[in-house]
Design a protein around this nucleic acid. Structure first.
Lengths: 105, 105
DNA sequence: ATTGTATATCGCAAATATACGATAATAAAA
DNA sequence: TTTTATTATCGTATATTTGCGATATACAAT
């Protein structure tokens, strides 16, 4: 890539791209669905649901955390993850706003 | 990555991830917006709108084409790109369906 | 204090993505 | 037919992503 992409595109496009990037791996989609399906905020059961190692799942969780789509809280020796509803809503509305612009051709 | 991700996740998650991946770069978001903003389906003017070289823009167009989000038609010596409305709609509804599932915590 | 459980991080390898210039390919125009 | 314009592709360099095992860390339980 040679140099950073930033500075070249506007903030909105960058933000949207970041959200999309967080959603750009099936494992992360699956994680979000697991979190949504279980009423309680699940931690390591996610690992059991996915065909990936614990360390790899942890990485995907980190990516989702960095995108703010999920929140992790310490619960004794384990971690309790849950969806970040407000950011998810924002993500949804940003994506919808993009698709609203897409009508031409 | 060592080996292909496929076979491990369900089709829906893979499809969603592919759509998200197509949207995961600000240049590609910008391209979609340019196509949406101009009534006519523009070709190389896209290059002028972006802070990237012609070859790089061409690569991003290819990525959007492979995700089926845009369509390219030959128009004499130039290419006429336009949004693929139906696939965009499908993408939108798939993303909305994901976000509909996201309400818990 | 030691052990066990759960999770994050490190270190590595391989694959993919991003970017560019140079070149090829295509078609119109001269 | 040669030239010009437009776009795609190739080759290359670098960065990032993905994956895993191994290890570190944190806490609970014994």
């Amino acid at each position: 890539m040679a140099y950073s992409k930033s500075e070249f595109f506007n903030r909105e496009d960058e933000q949207l791209a970041d959200i999309a990037k967080a959603l750009s791996h099936p494992a992360r989609i699956a994680i979000l669905k697991v979190l949504a399906a279980r009423q309680t905020c699940i931690c390591g059961e996610i690992v059991d649901e996915l065909p990936l190692s614990q360390s790899t799942v942890s990485q995907h969780l980190k990516a989702l955390k960095q995108a703010n789509l999920i929140i992790g809280e310490i619960d004794g020796p384990r971690m309790c993850y849950c969806l970040n509803e407000s950011i998810c809503k924002k993500a949804r509305s940003m994506l919808n706003s993009l698709f609203n612009k897409i009508k031409c051709c």
